[in-house]
């Protein structure tokens, strides 16, 4: 249409790199401290605007004393919860292990089973696809007897998987990756 030749350009909205909300809503996310730090390092001008003391005072003065107290308590609780959840997560991560298992399928034929990846927040389906592409073999997400899911890669690629994880996911400590061999899978049957 000719008459709308100059539509109003879209507004650019900045989103917090920590909690993904617009920075002005960070205070409700429970990770206020981290968000504030992020904003300070990336957009100091906005940080000083949002987190200055009079801005906070102005915000609170609109509420009744009672509501203020409640809001504060709520915020504290939320922050505590977020911190607790985070530390729990970190602990779980430290304790969890990725197991790369080489399973003999037939004489001299192997499949590699990788389990425990989901503990580190990785998407199994995507990683499986990635393995398939990298090693040019079949790779899929399979359900284990225990109810979890693991990645099964055709062929003996356990060393390569190990290297790949080191290279592409540096957040996983080396000690948490374990390579095991399982020879008697068919023997039981």
């Amino acid at each position: 249409m000719a008459e709308t030749a100059t539509p109003r350009p879209p507004k650019q909205v900045l989103y917090c790199g920590n909690c993904s909300l617009p920075p002005e809503y960070c205070e409700y996310g429970g990770t206020t401290k981290k968000c504030a730090d992020w904003l300070e390092s990336k957009h100091p001008d906005l940080h000083s605007k949002l987190y200055s003391t009079d801005a906070a005072a102005e915000g609170l003065s609109n509420l009744s004393v009672d509501a203020q107290k409640r809001a504060e308590k709520d915020a504290q609780k939320k922050a505590a919860k977020a911190v607790a959840a985070e530390s729990r997560e970190a602990e779980r991560r430290a304790a969890s292990k990725i197991i790369i298992k080489r399973v003999e399928r037939n004489k001299r034929k192997y499949v590699t089973e990788v389990s425990g990846l989901e503990q580190f927040g990785l998407d199994l389906k995507k990683i499986a696809k990635e393995f398939g592409k990298k090693f040019a073999t079949g790779s899929s997400v399979t359900k284990t007897a225990a109810g979890g899911e693991e990645i099964t890669v055709q062929g003996d690629v356990s060393d390569d998987v190990f290297d790949w994880l080191q290279e592409n996911h540096e957040e996983i400590p080396e000690d948490n990756i374990e390579q095991v061999e399982d020879k008697k899978k068919k023997a039981a049957a």
């Binding site: 915000g59 509420l63 509501a67 809001a71 709520d74």
Partner: peptide, 8 residues
């Protein structure tokens, strides 16, 4: 302002 935290 008081309602924001509930909405969020």
């Amino acid at each position: 302002r008081g309602a924001i935290r509930f909405v969020l």
